[in-house]
Design a protein around this nucleic acid. Structure first.
Length: 215
DNA sequence: ACATTAAGTGATT
DNA sequence: AATCACTTAATGT
């Protein structure tokens, strides 16, 4: 049975990346899913049974240790897929990351068996998977750099602009505590740095809301 | 009006 | 940059 909603979205966004037959097959075997902001897609230690293709919206990928300390790794945006899920599916291993919907999003879940089969069958799929791996690695390096070499105020500003970018809004709705968790620091520090940024005229603060003025 | 949650601040390490 | 301890402000019931 063909999911028309998914087929339409696929056509719109992947017209030039996937071949026609592949998109048809995707619409056939994939499961179209809608998720709401804040929904947990995948948690650390869970087995990965399918590979998500982001049709709309965005998903944030984070690391979490056993004490519950978090660290934001990168965002998955429209047209992206999770390289982590690919490597997990292939090796039948547990997920090392947690995935949470950054906003209301639409996904196409591709069952494990196909992602392997398609590598041989469809060159465009293979290219897509490779590209996606490169993209994720680049982003990972970027966040490693920012953690290792950037001061917290620079990191915070990058965090804010990144977040504004993925959601396409200049208004960010999050508490200082939320941000502190993502950057793995304390709320007090975030509050102070945000205050600084506001004085510099880069952002505007309100309760549960941050407006990014400059990019 | 009261309780709860978010944010601001000084002082200390 | 983290933590504590406390204040003030905004919001929910």
């Amino acid at each position: 049975m063909i999911d028309t909603k998914a087929a339409t979205l696929l056509q719109e966004q992947y017209e030039f990346v996937f071949q026609e037959e592949l998109m048809e097959e995707m619409a056939n075997v994939g499961t179209y899913t809608r998720i709401n902001e804040g929904d947990l897609l995948m948690d650390v230690g869970q087995y990965v049974v399918s590979m998500p293709l982001v049709l709309s919206g965005s998903v944030k990928i984070m690391r979490e240790d056993k004490e519950g300390n978090e660290l934001l790794l990168y965002y998955l945006e429209r047209g992206d897929t999770c390289a982590m899920s690919f490597s997990c599916c292939m090796g039948n291993r547990k997920s090392k990351v947690r995935a949470v919907a950054e906003e209301d999003s639409e996904l196409l879940m591709i069952p494990t068996d196909y992602i392997d089969k398609w590598l041989l069958k469809y060159p465009t799929w293979k290219a897509f998977v490779f590209d996606s791996f490169n993209g994720r690695i680049d982003e990972l390096i970027e966040t490693v750099d920012s953690v290792a070499f950037m001061k917290l105020d620079e990191r915070l500003l990058k965090y804010l602009t990144d977040k504004a970018k993925v959601t396409g809004k200049t208004e960010i709705s999050a508490t200082h505590q939320d941000i502190a968790y993502d950057l793995h620091t304390s709320r007090v520090v975030i509050s102070r740095l945000l205050k600084q940024l506001e004085k510099q005229g880069v952002i505007k603060l309100a309760r549960n809301r941050i407006e990014v003025l400059k990019f």
